[in-house]
Simulated scan of single mutants.
Amino acid sequence: MVSVVIPVYNGEKFIKKSIDSIIENWNGTYEIIIVDDGSTDETASICDSIAKNDTRIRIIHQKNAGVSNARNTGIYNAKGEWIIFVDADDLVQGDAINALDGIESSIDFVAFGTKKIQEWDRKQINKDELLLEVLGESNAIGFKMNAVWAKAYRKEMLDSNKIRFNEKLFHGEDLLFNVDVALKCKTAVILNKEIYKYIPTDTSATHKFQSNSLENEKIFTYEIDKRLGEDFNIDLKQKINNRINCMIINSIWIVCGQNICHTENKLKFGERKNILKNMIQMEPYKSVITKNINMENINSKQRMMASLLKEKKYGSVIFMFMIRNRISK
């Protein structure tokens, strides 16, 4: 059986469409676990109404504790051999159960596509290859491997290794979860099948003003470094270090965009500049900015930011983000 875990908070506008897409596309034995994370709109009543007419659907109501806690609640209550996470505002467009039929018992992790982008139908990869894919250092597959949607996780593997979402994070929790999976799973398979439709929305945490984004990124970089600081072969370690450096650059970008330079942050220009300066003087940001790192996997805007920070042109970085925010309005 497959357990589908859907965390939802104030999803009255889209939760029914998401559930319907699963019911319409999937055949076989499955359960849908909807974790209502303290919604204040009509989400709870909509979900309860749907569940009354379908025994495959279970609703868990809890106080608002965040998406990571809601997903962990889903994992704990799941009865299936496989767990698939679906965001409440996304849609399923293919039969994942049929795709999972015949998957060997040695496989702990399966990734699906959101569109067909390769000529092959199936590709088996080892732990090291999966880790590099999750970190975005390989790019050999072409799938979005740092997110948890469009993936299937063997529940026994998650439980036996105590793999859960970090509930202190609101950004980067998916990637950290998949890093843990990559470090512990035996073998992974990539299936070039379209089963998921990701729908970008403005309600995403990446678009919101986050007053504690710096603390989030400090926790994230610490947790990543703690996991990936162990011994690997020289070639793999170099690739991992390259990706960690890229992540730290991205963390600076996130803090600037979500906090320091966000339009809802009413700080004066000089105050923004000082906060950024103080951040860059802290580790690990200071070391990454001051040394020459491989920026191949960093986009051009982040490269420009890193170059300006290396020259200590903090005001120029603030000005760059303020222009960016004005244009994106």
Rank of each mutant, 00 (worst) to 15 (best):
E156C: 08
M247R: 12
I224Q: 00
A182G: 02
N126I: 12
G94V: 04
Y9S: 09
T206D: 14
P284I: 13
I33E: 05
I240G: 03
E104R: 12
T29M: 12
G38E: 01
L130I: 12
D174K: 05
D235H: 11
A306D: 07
I141H: 02
H262V: 08
E24S: 14
E104H: 10
S106W: 05
L130K: 05
S18Y: 01
K239C: 10
K310R: 15
D95R: 02
Q302E: 06
E133Y: 07
N27G: 11
D20F: 01
H171L: 15
L169D: 07
Q302M: 12
I57Y: 08
G102T: 09
G229H: 00
I97K: 08
A88L: 02
N166M: 06
K273A: 07
S328Y: 14
D41M: 04
L135E: 04
T221S: 14
D202P: 03
K52Y: 09
C47M: 13
I46E: 05
L131C: 04
A88T: 08
G28H: 09
K312L: 13
Q93F: 08
I141Q: 02
S45H: 09
I84V: 14
I254H: 05
N212G: 06
N259S: 12
D20E: 13
I32M: 06
K197W: 11
A152W: 00
F109K: 08
V92P: 05
T114P: 02
C246L: 12
N250M: 09
S39Y: 00
N278M: 13
M279N: 03
D121C: 12
K123T: 06
G94T: 04
K115Y: 14
I190M: 15
L169K: 05
Q210E: 10
I280Y: 07
E271N: 10
L131K: 00
